[in-house]
């Protein structure tokens, strides 16, 4: 199977991608990272540059052809591949075999307890595309509930968008910020020390806002929590 790290995680959050590798290898998978991969084209597509998304979708289909599964630590990029690549360049085995991380763990590997240990107070934000486009449902929460030591606190108004929305965050920066302010208030209301999600893009937004006000709450991708064990705590958390 292959890992599609996504351009954002590859570039800004290598720890998340390393965590996915560690987690999947711990669960007995052999993970490859084909170096021909770049970006799924979502930014172009969603901003209205459909034509420029096409070669990227084409590249994806070529790079990941031949793997029996592609795992993506992002609901939004997995959604782009599965929902929109077929419309851009036609369906391919690579698009149908693409899974968001929690889908792969729960549906393909059939595990809900990945043997993780993470002794922190955590709240989970279900990102819009994982929730509404992919319909990952309560898979992430099921996985989190099985993590030992983890104190999971419910996020109020969890299903409301954090205001990221790709280029929306800069094109409509003020509206985006107003949405972020409410999301941050909800996160802070939980008293959590860590806010987690399945998308680094949304976490970059929520975390960027929390950092700006020195809120003292860390954004941590779900994969990093699941990769963490008692023997080997995840480096990023220390």
């Amino acid at each position: 199977m292959a890992l599609f790290a996504t351009c954002l995680t590859d570039t800004f959050y290598p720890d998340t991608a390393r965590a996915v590798v560690r987690l999947l290898e711990r669960l007995g998978c052999t993970v490859d990272f084909p170096l021909g991969q770049t970006c799924c084209g979502q930014m172009h597509f969603n901003t209205g540059y459909r034509e420029q998304a096409k070669p990227l979708a084409q590249r994806y289909a070529g790079v990941f052809a031949g793997y029996h599964a592609v795992v993506v630590p992002s609901g939004s990029c997995a959604g782009m591949v599965r929902e929109f690549h077929p419309g851009l360049v036609g369906a391919s085995p690579a698009t149908t075999m693409t899974y968001e991380l929690t889908e792969f763990l729960v549906d393909v590997l059939g595990v809900t307890d990945v043997g993780a240990y993470f002794p922190h107070r955590v709240t989970y934000h279900p990102t819009c595309h994982s929730l509404r486009m992919l319909g990952v449902g309560d898979r992430p929460l099921t996985l989190l509930r099985a993590v030992r030591g983890l104190d999971l606190v419910e996020l109020p108004f969890a299903e409301t968008c954090c205001g990221f929305g790709g280029t929306f965050a800069v094109k409509n920066a003020e509206t985006s910020t107003a949405m972020l302010a409410d999301k941050m208030r909800c996160v802070l209301d939980t008293g959590a020390e860590v806010v987690t999600a399945g998308d680094n893009s949304c976490l970059m937004h929520i975390g960027g806002g929390l950092s700006r006000v020195r809120a003292g709450v860390r954004p941590v991708h779900l994969a990093e929590i699941l990769a963490s064990t008692e023997e080997e705590p995840w480096a990023a958390i220390r």
Partner: peptide
């Protein structure tokens, strides 16, 4: 245009080594 982001949000610093560099 990055200022539109940083008007209200910080940006994580990119790491010295991306994931692909680490993988290779």
């Amino acid at each position: 245009p990055g200022s539109r982001w940083t008007a209200s949000r910080d940006v994580p610093a990119p790491p010295a080594e991306s994931f692909r560099m680490w993988w290779r």
